[in-house]
Write a protein that binds this DNA or RNA. Structure first.
Length: 145
DNA sequence: AGCCATGCACCG
DNA sequence: CGGTGCATGGCT
């Protein structure tokens, strides 16, 4: 069996929101299996495999993001990382900025939803930890290995 | 490992 | 022709 991560969050970097002037249109997803288990599995043998995912926001609007595994390292290049791209429109519409947090969830029926929490609304948890690691956090997980 | 950056293709 | 995303390299 595999892990079934149901909800994760990420504190946005300046580059994620476009504040650095880049047009990357994608945030990096660490190559960590519990994080990756939130997303559909991609065939890692393919070159830059991807899946397009529909996310519903709090107001019921649908957004399509792209979950991509840039793996050209195994095809003569240097990349070996996952990204969730095509979020710029959502980020702009929501008015998100660096240090704001996006919350991604997946239902029992594998329907994805997205929400966010502005920095000003972010609260430390019971341990007083506000931001951990690279900004990603697993909120809830089901199943076992 | 994670964030920053960009040439080019595509599309309105 | 300006904005967006792809694919990739660079920097710390």
């Amino acid at each position: 069996m595999t892990f079934e991560t149901r909800s994760i969050t990420k504190v946005l970097s300046a580059n994620d929101t476009g504040e650095t002037g880049g047009h990357q249109a994608g945030i990096l997803v660490p190559r960590e299996r519990r994080l990756l288990s939130f997303f559909p599995s991609l065939n890692e043998k393919d070159y830059n495999p991807r899946a397009h995912l529909k996310f519903v926001d709090a107001s019921g609007l649908e957004w399509e993001f792209a979950f991509i595994y840039y793996n050209n390292k195994f095809f003569g290049g240097t990349r070996n990382e996952y990204r969730l791209t095509r979020m710029t429109r959502f980020i702009r519409e929501a008015g998100l900025a660096a240090d704001d947090e996006v919350i991604l969830s997946r239902s029992e029926a594998d329907e994805y939803s997205i929400d966010f929490k502005r920095k000003s609304e972010a609260r430390p948890d019971e341990r007083g930890v506000l931001k951990l690691g690279s900004g990603w956090k697993i909120v809830d997980m089901e199943g076992r290995r």
